[in-house]
Design a binder for these strands. Structure first.
Lengths: 340, 340
DNA sequence: TTGTAAGCGTTATCAA
DNA sequence: TTGATAACGCTTACAA
């Protein structure tokens, strides 16, 4: 016989026990004598045996994999620091749990639905992360229909049963506005991302209520799509308003950086003629000229926590929602006093 | 009995045939009467049955999944347009083939090795993409040892058996240098990425040979790491050289953008005092000020082709290497004539 | 061309 | 506390 990989039968035989007992031991089930357990573990270790997930999945209907379906344009993913950092956080947890991440990048809603359905039909994953929540997100109903364990990244708009791992981004936006007001700005514009996203919507709301709190009238507000192109176009629109604002709050860093580019191209100085703030804490923002004042969150911790919560949901059937530390303003040089 | 998902047995029974025949039909195997085949397909379709990959994998030892292990800092992934675009390309092919992408993001070589070994030990994937090739890349030996089908993204340095999907990036670098020379530049610096990567090494070599071809002496050359921080620091070093160059070629866009930021912070104008070129064609580069002259490749096509080749390698045991269209220079406004 | 039956490597059930 | 033995859902010899 060729030296094929050892199976549970080989381990059982070598340890002089039945397959069932070996299974009990690797699954940490009670009812096995301590010395028997130790012996089995020793043999398994010596033979370098571990249960194969796909064989196991046949009887348990568990795949030991978690799914993440991302519906975004590649261009947007490319410039979003959330994406890889969140993934790194998830990954750091999964490896220790013998889990694996199945990732799917789709471009439209139809492909997105199909992706979730196929993941379930093919029993590819035991649960999924729901990111980029929309205000009316049909994935909430979908995962319920499919009986697919899921957790929401960022609080869904409607009240939901789903465990949620959330991070308050409104605080950072409020800090941005307050920072600008303290510097003496009175006309502060806002470039929103896509407000069909919960986070896009919430950030805009935070801007509006902060302006109100400062007893300033909000606007101009431009709605766009979180992309560099969108940020530049929105900035152009803002420049056309009269009276022109002296500062602009952007809903993410990419739009802010593109916005600064457009301002400079039009001959305006940042921050002398226009102050600018971003959101994300992208690495690049430290090295632009001027360096971008922005709001930084901790997406890696977000991913880590999300993975832990999802695993708990899968194994225990329920899990708590978690609120992470809020995003914080980091002041750099793209903001300053308005020139009179 | 509850209405559990149909299995191959249900389909066989309903169609009045054996399980074996159903299996033959879904696997497109010859030797089934045409009308029988049609009837079986009709029944399967009607019942909404498809073979479950994990049940299938037990006998075939195929997982219907492809693996991609990425060893990079999240920060670097975050700013690299290659990553999501390549992934989108891969994904666009996989879905049609009932395949899934298992992605792993690791931070060091030890975790990387472990990731590949676990993927194989757990029979998680049928093959892997090898990206970010190093000049002496131990993964080539590793996949050989593991018997893991793999394709190289970008040509490995040493002669290898692996099918390769490559894209000539040296052409774009040469174009960059030629463009600058035509504009009248004679002292052209270079900010390399990490030259332990094949692509980092090749780009630098392309710069050097282009300079030689133009009968100019190469340098200053600064080696760094493809990050924004690295790009800024390298630029600072270049500014310290005497005589100072009038143009700098950067090995990627992020370093180029950070470099422009540093130049401007030091009071230099781009391109009047210093021309700058990048590499990647990142979306953001169109909207910086000035807009970045850069080299654009098509990483989405790269991913698409890579997926097709890898699938062929897995199913047929061999696959051709493919050479994609070379990257091309796109001139924008970060390059101009040197001021005398 | 079709059916039967034996795997594939686990976990689950039920006795002992 | 342990051991047989039957699932789990599919593929694949081998027979018919």
């Amino acid at each position: 016989m060729v030296d094929r990989r050892p199976t549970i039968a080989d381990v059982a035989q070598r340890a002089g026990v039945s397959k069932g007992l070996v299974s009990f031991v690797v699954n940490n089930r009670p009812g096995v004598a301590a010395d028997t357990r130790a012996r089995i573990l020793a043999v398994a270790d010596e033979m370098g045996w571990r249960p194969r997930p796909n064989a196991r999945s046949l009887s348990t209907r568990r795949s030991s994999a978690l799914g993440w379906v991302v519906r975004r344009e590649p261009d947007v993913v490319a410039t979003d620091p959330f994406f890889p950092a969140f993934m790194a956080g998830v990954e750091s947890v999964l490896a220790d749990h013998g889990q694996v991440l199945v990732l799917s990048l789709v471009s439209d809603a139809v492909a997105e639905q199909r992706a979730y359905r196929t993941l379930v039909a093919d029993a590819r994953v035991d649960g999924v992360f729901l990111t980029d929540l929309h205000r009316a997100d049909d994935r909430l109903a979908l995962v319920a229909e499919l009986g697919l364990p899921a957790i929401a990244i960022g609080r869904p708009d409607a009240h939901q049963e789903l465990p949620t791992v959330d991070l308050d981004d409104t605080h950072g936006v409020a800090q941005s506005v307050e920072h600008l007001v303290e510097l003496g700005h009175r006309r502060i514009g806002y470039v929103a991302g896509d407000i069909s996203f919960v986070h896009g919507y919430r950030r805009r709301a935070a801007y509006a209520s902060s302006m109100e709190r400062a007893e300033l009238s909000a606007g101009p507000i431009v709605l766009t799509d979180f992309s560099a192109a969108g940020g530049a176009a929105a900035t152009s629109q803002i420049l056309d308003t009269d009276p022109r604002p002296t500062a602009v709050v952007y809903a993410n860093d990419v739009m802010a950086i593109a916005g600064m580019g457009l301002l400079q191209q039009r001959g305006l100085r940042v921050p002398e003629d226009m102050s600018v703030t971003g959101f994300d804490g992208a690495a690049l923002g430290r090295y632009t000229y001027p360096a971008l004042t922005t709001v930084v969150a901790d997406p890696m911790a977000w991913g880590r926590t999300a993975a832990e919560v999802l695993l708990q949901l899968i194994t225990e059937g329920h899990a708590p929602s978690v609120e992470l530390a809020p995003a914080q303003l980091v002041v750099r040089t793209s903001t300053g006093r308005p020139t009179p």
